[in-house]
Amino acid sequence: MLMKSWGRMVLLVYALIIAAPLYFVFLSAFKQPQTFFSSPLGWPKPFTLGNFASLFKEQPMWRYLLNSVEVTFGTVLLELLLGSMISYAIFRLGGKLGKVLFGLFLGGLIVPSQVNMLPIYTLAHKLGWSDQLPGLILISAAMLMPVSVFMLAGFMKLLSKEILEAGSMDGAGEWTLFTRFALPLSAPSIAATATFLFVMVWNDLLIPMLMINGKSKLTLPLAMLQFRGEFVTNYPMLLTGVVVTALPMVLLFLFLQKYFVAGITAGSLKG
């Protein structure tokens, strides 16, 4: 009983730690600049929607939003397509060859993204991908491929080999086995992986900062830097942009929560 009470207390403290900055960001989005500096943690007086109106009036936020949608969906779809195919190949190969192939992708998780910045920029510049959204999609997909393979390969190992062998005996090729059996059976895990990837790509700042220069091609996280001045920063407007940027991911998680939980618990259901 005592351990349960302590556990609940720890969870409550953790929830407060998470909720405190969310409370600050959300309320600040509805404050005027003078109210923000005079009462940073207080309730907005007056409560105003002017920051949201000014944000979309003074900045091409719809353009930034569409850029983020294009980059995020393009990257995630490419990740899921290639990542699921690679993971299926690792599962089907098995043995030492499958372990070596999996180890190569696993090694990609060890190398920090910052170490690759210079060679990635040089390669993108030589290929003519700099300041191009398709180039940003390809680079982002390549950088996140180890994450996709790491997650999906673990789920693919849970597939029943007997079902695939039965399909092979009936004359099904590997592509048919992959599309008709492996993908449908892995749907919860693919949805869970997609949720992780959506959040990572949508909130990514490093790769877009490295690749994009033109203002018309900025993604939402990169566009938020425009509110940071050398001497003065418009914090209410900046935090309003943070709310606008985070809202699509919150809604996405609410819709995919069922699949996310199913994918996370998939590994505990075998046997």
Rank of each mutant, 00 (worst) to 15 (best):
G7Q: 14
R8S: 06
M9W: 13
L11S: 12
V13L: 15
V13R: 00
Y14Q: 07
Y14K: 01
I17E: 07
I17V: 15
A20G: 01
P21A: 09
P21Y: 10
F24W: 15
L27N: 11
A29K: 08
F30M: 09
F36V: 13
F37W: 06
F37E: 05
P40M: 12
P44V: 08
L49S: 07
G50R: 03
G50N: 06
A53D: 06
S54Q: 12
S54P: 04
L55D: 12
F56R: 04
K57N: 10
K57V: 05
Q59F: 12
M61R: 01
Y64V: 01
L66K: 12
S68R: 04
F73R: 02
L77A: 15
L77Q: 02
E79A: 11
L80S: 03
L82M: 15
L82Q: 03
I86D: 10
I86Q: 05
Y88R: 07
Y88T: 08
A89I: 07
A89P: 00
I90N: 04
I90R: 05
I90G: 05
F91D: 11
L93E: 13
L97Y: 09
K99M: 13
V100M: 14
L101I: 01
F102A: 11
G103M: 06
L104C: 12
F105E: 09
L106Q: 13
G108I: 07
L109H: 08
P112N: 05
S113D: 10
N116Q: 14
N116I: 14
M117F: 03
Y121A: 02
L123G: 00
L127M: 05
L127S: 01
Q132C: 02
L136Y: 05
I137L: 02
A141G: 14
A142T: 14
A142N: 01
M145R: 08
P146N: 10
S148H: 07
V149A: 04
V149K: 05
M156L: 09
I163P: 00
G167D: 08
D170R: 03
D170T: 07
A172T: 09
E174W: 12
T179L: 14
A182V: 07
L183Q: 13
P184D: 10
L185F: 09
S186M: 15
A187Q: 07
A187S: 11
S189I: 04
S189Y: 04
S189M: 10
A192T: 12
A192V: 09
L197I: 03
L197V: 06
W202G: 06
W202V: 00
L205V: 08
P208R: 11
P208I: 11
P208M: 00
P208F: 10
M209Y: 08
M211Q: 12
M211R: 09
N213L: 04
G214S: 15
S216P: 00
K217H: 08
L220R: 06
L220F: 09
A223G: 11
A223E: 13
Q226L: 11
F231S: 12
V232D: 10
N234L: 11
Y235W: 15
Y235E: 08
P236C: 07
T240D: 10
G241P: 11
G241W: 03
G241M: 04
V243W: 04
T245N: 12
A246H: 01
A246D: 05
L247K: 01
P248T: 11
M249W: 02
V250S: 00
V250E: 04
L256C: 13
K258P: 06
G263M: 06
I264M: 14
I264P: 02
G271Q: 05
